[in-house]
């Protein structure tokens, strides 16, 4: 390996592991000064990622407080170093980390709120696409049930056993809604430049989840009707179209 490569290997090891010795040959200063100077890099590398997570997960941070959040984020950064120079979606695995993070177990909904925030970021940066309007439903015709719903590239769905969507909404400045209870399914989409969230409960959530996973309208409706006999698939489809979540309807023979 080149001399430069050896130095960078030692530098990288010491950045990742605060216990590791700093690289040799960093100036003839007192050891304590060299340590402190190297610590600036150690701190930059970690703190910049913690800051990025705090910016991406503001509601999660508000729920646990800044001190707890930054300690949790520090642990995540230690376990999952970025593998890409593009940090836009760094933290997409943070929700899974939170779900397994022992000190956060007192807030069982926390990981799902974080999933909504990760979905928000992914939706924000997703490829642009023009959604169908509600009028598209009329064009579906007699074999509508066999159609599958192709959703926008920006659509993300978060299925929670908790009222995670209501908790997220309660932390938005413009929101003045009632607290929710029970399981919620949250659909995040960006039909144009604004990310929007739709919180669904019961059969409507079952219906959207089945469509999101690639089921036909018929199959999704059957699953939803199993949860609630009075469910109306037509109304739910119009809601999805109105929210701007649908890219196209695909018939079986189109696929």
């Amino acid at each position: 390996m080149s001399t430069l490569g050896e130095m960078q290997q030692a530098f990288a090891r010491a950045l990742s592991d605060p216990e590791a010795a700093i690289p040799a040959g960093l100036g003839g200063r007192r050891a304590a000064q060299a340590q402190r100077r190297f610590a600036i890099y150690r701190n930059n590398v970690t703190a910049s990622l913690i800051d990025a997570l705090q910016e991406s997960f503001p509601v999660t941070a508000a729920l646990v407080g800044e001190e707890f959040f930054r300690a949790m984020a520090r642990e995540f950064v230690r376990c999952e170093r970025p593998r890409s120079q593009v940090l836009l979606c760094y933290g997409d695995t943070f929700p899974d980390f939170i779900a397994a993070f022992e000190p956060a177990q007192a807030l069982p909904y926390l990981a799902d709120v974080a999933r909504i925030e990760a979905a928000w970021i992914a939706t924000y940066h997703a490829a642009d696409a023009e959604p169908l309007g509600p009028a598209a439903l009329a064009a579906l015709g007699a074999d509508a049930g066999a159609a599958r719903v192709k959703l926008l590239p920006s659509v993300r769905l978060v299925v929670s056993q908790f009222p995670a969507g209501s908790i997220w909404l309660a932390h938005q400045a413009e929101h003045a809604g009632e607290a929710g209870e029970g399981p919620e399914t949250v659909l995040v989409v960006r039909p144009a430049m604004e990310v929007t969230l739709r919180v669904m409960r019961g059969a409507e959530g079952v219906f959207a989840t089945a469509l999101y996973r690639g089921g036909s309208i018929e199959e999704a409706a059957a699953a939803a009707l199993g949860a609630d006999g009075s469910f109306d698939p037509g109304t739910a489809l119009v809601s999805l179209l109105t929210q701007g979540a649908v890219l196209a309807f695909e018939m079986e023979n189109d696929r």
């Binding site: 593009v86 836009l88 924000y124 940066h125 997703a126 642009d128 590239p153 920006s154 960006r190 430049m193």
Partner: peptide, 13 residues
């Protein structure tokens, strides 16, 4: 440059 390496959305717009 790295802030504009997403597929789409408001940054590019």
């Amino acid at each position: 440059a790295e802030n504009y390496m997403g597929a789409g959305g408001p940054p590019h717009a």
